[in-house]
Computed example of a mutant assay.
Amino acid sequence: MSSTMTHRDDIEDVLNRYAHAYDDRDAEGVGATFAEDGELSLRISGGDLVGPWSGRAAVVEMMAATLATQEDQRRHLASTFTLDACDGESARARSYLTLVAVAGGELRVLTTGRYVDELVHGEHGWLIRRRHIELDLPY
């Protein structure tokens, strides 16, 4: 079996842990999915690059500030996961995002987009080295 398939489940798992931590409003949990030198950036509707936030501490700080402003219950639904490359030490992956929220008894689709991830494997397993989020619409 190729190293890509050997590591696929573990890589997909760390990306899913990111989503669960975000939706649970756990900034430290989000940070735990990033390498110490991890980086997060995003772009909305082809606009200017936002970020990057460089280093796990900067990602956690940004996440904590963002989560403090959200009053709805978010669900980050990642799908169509593709592992583009993996050599056992680093990997590149892509997936789609559908972001939904529940507030006041109503469900809304906030936006869709794409995650583009670079990951590294170390003594603590797979971690996100770089995550770039391309959102299709502002919300």
Rank of each mutant, 00 (worst) to 15 (best):
35 A>C: 04
35 A>W: 12
35 A>M: 06
36 E>S: 14
36 E>N: 09
37 D>F: 04
38 G>L: 08
40 L>E: 08
40 L>Q: 09
41 S>H: 07
42 L>R: 14
42 L>W: 09
43 R>I: 07
44 I>G: 07
45 S>C: 01
47 G>K: 05
48 D>A: 15
48 D>M: 06
48 D>F: 11
50 V>Y: 07
50 V>T: 13
50 V>A: 10
50 V>P: 00
52 P>A: 14
52 P>M: 12
52 P>Q: 15
53 W>L: 08
53 W>I: 06
54 S>E: 15
54 S>P: 04
56 R>D: 13
57 A>P: 09
57 A>T: 10
57 A>D: 15
57 A>W: 05
58 A>S: 15
60 V>Q: 06
60 V>E: 04
60 V>F: 06
62 M>P: 04
62 M>Q: 14
63 M>Y: 01
64 A>K: 15
66 T>D: 11
67 L>V: 08
67 L>G: 07
68 A>I: 03
68 A>E: 11
68 A>N: 02
69 T>P: 00
69 T>H: 08
69 T>A: 02
70 Q>V: 15
70 Q>G: 01
70 Q>R: 10
71 E>M: 06
71 E>C: 00
73 Q>C: 01
74 R>A: 09
75 R>E: 04
77 L>M: 13
77 L>R: 09
77 L>H: 11
77 L>T: 05
80 T>R: 13
81 F>T: 07
81 F>Y: 15
82 T>V: 13
83 L>C: 09
83 L>D: 04
87 D>N: 09
87 D>Y: 04
87 D>P: 02
88 G>W: 05
88 G>C: 05
88 G>N: 00
88 G>H: 08
88 G>Y: 02
90 S>M: 01
91 A>H: 05
91 A>V: 02
91 A>Q: 03
92 R>S: 11
93 A>M: 02
93 A>E: 00
93 A>K: 02
93 A>D: 00
94 R>A: 08
94 R>W: 00
97 L>Q: 03
97 L>K: 08
97 L>A: 07
98 T>R: 09
98 T>I: 07
98 T>K: 04
98 T>E: 09
99 L>S: 07
99 L>D: 06
100 V>D: 05
100 V>K: 04
100 V>P: 01
101 A>L: 10
102 V>A: 09
102 V>W: 10
102 V>D: 03
102 V>I: 15
